[in-house]
Amino acid sequence: MRVGLFITCLADLLRPSLARAARTLLALTGAEVVVPRRQTCCGQPALNAGDPATTRALALKLAREFADCDAVVLPSGSCAGTLRIHYPGLFAERPEAERRDIEALAARTHELAEFLDTRLPEVPGRHAGRVTYHDSCSGLRELGVKQAPRALLARVPGLELVEMMNAEDCCGFGGTFALKYGAISAAICDRKCAAIRASGAGTVTGGDLGCLMHLAGRLQRTGDTTTRVLHWAEIVAGTSGAQAWK
């Protein structure tokens, strides 16, 4: 099986350790893992900024670059949701050939945890202590990602998974919303930060880098330098050199 890893633009720019973790874990499933070099962004920011034409162009570009992959895997619920849920709708009135390609792409798109859930034979990571998992909205409500990342985390030796209150509540990131309405975004985030601290976990994790950098950046700004923030894949992969955001 040939698996194409779509790194996502945020991980590309800010979190190479997540890309390494994802590649490591995918390789463990026995699949042939490729990382197409011309990949950029899935176009989610354009879609949410009211520019579907750009997203359509990026969708076709992505479909071409991953045409020879049996599966396209993304370490992000919202990007996977863009490919699987939003792309097909954007092509409803486009030529048949384009529509077929995009629907085929959507059908073989997987969020990383969903893909690994039943396929990962062993868990290389080790972790001492409590971890709490934040359900990012798109992964949870668009794709139904809930149990898979928790199950993977539970397999990490030494890791104790604890649930925070209202784990499914939005953290306030919302893509460009975090830039346009920074003050509201941060105020929503403060409720999430309080829930994380109340959980007694020293580490918070999740499946969407946007939410994680928002959480980590807010914790940092409000003087919390002890709570660690990591993508769950970095914990499960035990990526050497994965510096937690804290």
């Binding site: 790194i7 991980a11 590309d12 720019l13 800010l14 979190r15 190479p16 350790s17 997540l18 890309a19 390494r20 590649r23 990382v35 070099r37 990949q39 975090a178 830039l179 346009k180 309405y181 920074g182 003050a183 975004s185 941060a186 985030c189 950098m213 928002h214 980590a216 950046g217 807010r218 940092q220 700004r221 955001w245």
Partner: peptide, 22 residues
């Protein structure tokens, strides 16, 4: 990205893109 940094710090990353690292 002043809208971001008014209320949150921004991560400095690793100095290389993920594609460079891989």
């Amino acid at each position: 990205a002043a809208g971001w940094t008014a209320t949150r710090d921004f991560p400095a990353g690793e100095g290389r893109t993920a594609r460079e690292v891989l």
